[in-house]
Design a protein around this nucleic acid. Sequence first.
DNA 1: TTATTTGCAAACCGTTTGCACCATA
DNA 2: TATGGTGCAAACGGTTTGCAAATAA
Lengths: 149, 149
Amino acid sequence: MGYNEESFIKILKSKGLKVTNQRKTVLKALSSKPDQHLTAEEIYELVRVDIPEIGIATIYRTIQLLCELGLIDKLNLDDGYVRYEIGKEDKNEHHHHHLICVNCGKVLKFDDDLLDELEKQVGKTTGFIVHDHELKMYGYCRDCQNNRK
Amino acid sequence: MGYNEESFIKILKSKGLKVTNQRKTVLKALSSKPDQHLTAEEIYELVRVDIPEIGIATIYRTIQLLCELGLIDKLNLDDGYVRYEIGKEDKNEHHHHHLICVNCGKVLKFDDDLLDELEKQVGKTTGFIVHDHELKMYGYCRDCQNNRK
DNA sequence: TTATTTGCAAACCGTTTGCACCATA
DNA sequence: TATGGTGCAAACGGTTTGCAAATAA
């Protein structure tokens, strides 16, 4: 886990892209919050601590680049914001999915390996070659259940 | 399946809401395309055939109402549009999920009952009371695989 | 030096809102 | 008639884009 600057520089150079302080700082910001699901605005605030003059447009452009490079994942929690999180470095790791409290909005991650089997099954019956999946579960977290009593 | 005007009228009246031609026509439009995932703009175009003077604001307000009534489902296919589809009338029916071709954008539905078990399991370990889930799988459809050869 | 990247501000576009008019009950 | 719903246009807010200045290679 964590931010590996050397390998990031290597990736950028191999694609003919320039290594800028902005790009390094955005990736570092996302790496520093591995358990959160940050909006562009939240990333902007984090990066501004180090680079006060950065513009929100650069945040959006960098986010898009990092997604294309597969270094971060896009995430939609249906609250009107697109969110991002640092990708797992080991691509063979279990997928993690999201448990969303419909009352307070809290989001928990959970791991899963059950769906890999389902992927194969669905691929067979539909002819799709499935290479990724995303699962969200909605409900009430423990706290919200207690507060209702 | 299909559009049941009588029961819709009953639901509206029971909530003290008025039965308008706009509301009936929006629900009818969504019912007429049970296998599609319509954007607000697409619903607008469909409804304008019957009610040319309708405004897009009414579409948005009606869609939101229908969601709250549980008659239609919101859907996010990560293409920048929020989409809607008519809900299954039998609430005990299997969930259906979505298989999205990352090349052509085609969307197939598939049924599932495997996840009901997973819901219970996750609920036990996290303390969440899970009452819904949404699963998306991403891959290449048969056509796009053939076209690549 | 030169091709990319950045910051700024304006544009974009899907969605929401305020308000006067209209329709349902 | 009275309450809610509708159509219109303007506002909103997250995201994208055009462009000149700045920077990495």
